[in-house]
Simulated scan of single mutants.
Amino acid sequence: MISVRRILVVLGVAFTAYLAARGLWWTAPVNNPTVVIVTLCLYLFTTWLCIWWDPGPAHGPRGPGALPVWACVLALANAVIVPSAIAVGVGAASRTAGFATWYLGGIGALMTIVMVRRRPWVAWAGIVALAIASMAWLGIVSALALGLVGSAVWVAVAQVLMLSMDRAASDTARLAQLQRAASAWQAAQTVRQRERRVQVQRALAVAGPVLSRTVAAGGRLSDEDRAEARLAEGSLRDELRGARLLDDEVRAELERARRRGAHVTMLDEGGLEHLDDAALAVVRGELAETLREAQSERLFIRTSPHASVAVTVVGRSGAGQALSDEDAVDLWREIEHPAQD
């Protein structure tokens, strides 16, 4: 499959090869062809190395990775050596010819590649070295007219594009994070709505018959109806205050305790959020067993923030009314957190 990166790589290789080929299109004699050819080979080796070198995994969302330091040093060496070597190799009479000034665009292309490979300071240092060398051999006006300005513009445009790409990648990542957060929030709201619907349906199932009889009787309830109303009220309080502790078995034991005359208070004060369904089932089973054996007149069931205790069940009987009245406490049970894999 042809990717954008592969197309850009091919274009980069083709363009730098074209610039180097201009250096071999001699329209006049050159003093030292060997120096020119070796310099062209050095340039192509360095440029293509900077294009192809990628020792790591696939490129990230922000584009190609940074060049290694040794490659940056080699690119800077080209910016320093190539202009002088070409100027010496072609001779003074041909220094402004097209085949002798190719390095103005060639080094500019190399520094553009270095910029794309996330070495901006190296790229601008190379442009400065190119400017100094070309002005020294060609003169300020000739260097500017023959391509030095264009090379600097290429590097500047590459830097702007990289900054824009980085900002776009950052915005995309932030948008993806916001989308994930919004999806999580929506999922949580859906779960809460489902839980509320279940609680409302259960409340209607518990309180609906009692309310219907109350309306039908015009508020004149028998003792049995009043007892059923108190049971319904207690069940609704349990659903609102301690839903995580409830299952069918616990609900049945709570109803049994209330029918024998016990006053039951249940509070979920946190501490069970990290338990999975299996662990909650173990806690509920122990709670149901504790309620089945309890004979206290008042039962207090509370979740515990303690690291090892999940639920505390306190039973009180007799005349004592204060929680600090130890003589009135006839049941104390701490249900520990079940071990989880």
Score class of each variant (00 low, 15 high):
residue 157 V to I: 15
residue 256 R to H: 03
residue 268 D to Y: 05
residue 87 A to N: 02
residue 307 A to N: 08
residue 318 G to T: 09
residue 290 T to Y: 09
residue 170 S to E: 15
residue 204 L to Q: 07
residue 339 A to P: 08
residue 150 G to N: 06
residue 128 V to I: 13
residue 317 S to E: 09
residue 36 V to T: 12
residue 163 L to A: 15
residue 321 Q to W: 12
residue 257 A to V: 10
residue 180 R to Q: 12
residue 81 I to S: 01
residue 31 N to Y: 13
residue 63 G to E: 01
residue 233 E to H: 14
residue 52 W to G: 10
residue 23 G to P: 10
residue 116 V to I: 09
residue 139 G to L: 00
residue 176 A to C: 05
residue 264 V to W: 11
residue 139 G to F: 00
residue 333 R to A: 14
residue 14 A to L: 13
residue 313 V to L: 13
residue 123 A to T: 02
residue 71 A to P: 00
residue 18 Y to D: 02
residue 10 V to P: 08
residue 92 A to P: 07
residue 148 L to I: 05
residue 203 A to C: 09
residue 158 A to W: 02
residue 171 D to L: 08
residue 309 V to T: 01
residue 207 A to G: 14
residue 117 R to G: 08
residue 121 W to K: 13
residue 113 I to F: 08
residue 31 N to G: 12
residue 161 L to F: 08
residue 74 L to A: 11
residue 68 P to L: 10
residue 23 G to N: 03
residue 337 H to C: 07
residue 332 W to A: 14
residue 103 Y to R: 06
residue 270 G to E: 10
residue 3 S to L: 03
residue 308 S to I: 05
residue 172 T to I: 03
residue 188 A to S: 10
residue 307 A to E: 11
residue 69 V to T: 15
residue 170 S to G: 15
residue 322 A to E: 14
residue 253 E to H: 11
residue 91 G to E: 09
residue 19 L to Q: 05
residue 98 G to P: 12
residue 250 V to K: 05
residue 297 E to A: 06
residue 146 L to D: 02
residue 271 G to K: 06
residue 252 A to L: 13
residue 244 R to D: 04
residue 105 G to V: 02
residue 143 A to D: 03
residue 181 A to P: 08
residue 86 I to P: 01
residue 250 V to Q: 04
residue 198 V to D: 05
residue 284 R to Q: 11
residue 163 L to P: 02
residue 76 L to T: 01
residue 190 T to V: 13
residue 297 E to F: 04
residue 228 E to L: 05
